[in-house]
């Protein structure tokens, strides 16, 4: 037999989370603003660390290259002075100012050698 009246009032189990729209909007806006900024801050910080390292490496490479160039020039000068001094020394005479030049170039001494045999 079919019932003429069907009750629709069967209560559904409800678990309602009550919150204020004010709080939801506030949290939503705050999160939308803060999350990207936080991520950006972390990214910028890491980027800055990497950039600082790279900048330091670049700077120090340039400084090393610059010092190397200065050293190369010094070595070239040493070679020239040494060749000149050695040539004159082998001929047994000392040009004027040679000692001062050698001293200015930080020579401790200049000598020649022969084999005993």
């Amino acid at each position: 037999m079919k019932r003429a009246h069907i009750s629709h009032s069967a209560a559904l189990p409800t678990m309602r989370l009550r919150f204020r729209l004010h709080h939801a909007v506030f949290l939503g806006l705050a999160l939308i603003a803060m999350v990207p900024v936080s991520v950006l801050a972390v990214w910028v910080q890491r980027q800055e660390a990497r950039t600082s390292l790279e900048a330091a490496q670049d700077t120090q490479s340039v400084m090393a290259s610059s010092l190397t160039a200065a050293n190369s020039r010094y070595v070239a000068d040493l070679e020239s002075v040494f060749e000149m001094a050695a040539t004159h020394a082998s001929m047994g005479h000392e040009p004027a100012g040679m000692r001062e030049l050698l001293a200015r170039m930080h020579f401790h001494h200049l000598s020649w050698s022969t084999r005993t045999t």
Binding site: L110, S111, W112, S113, R115
Partner: peptide, 9 residues
């Protein structure tokens, strides 16, 4: 080798 010092700076 024998080294003779010509210039002892």
């Amino acid at each position: 080798y024998v080294i003779r010092f010509w210039l002892a700076l």
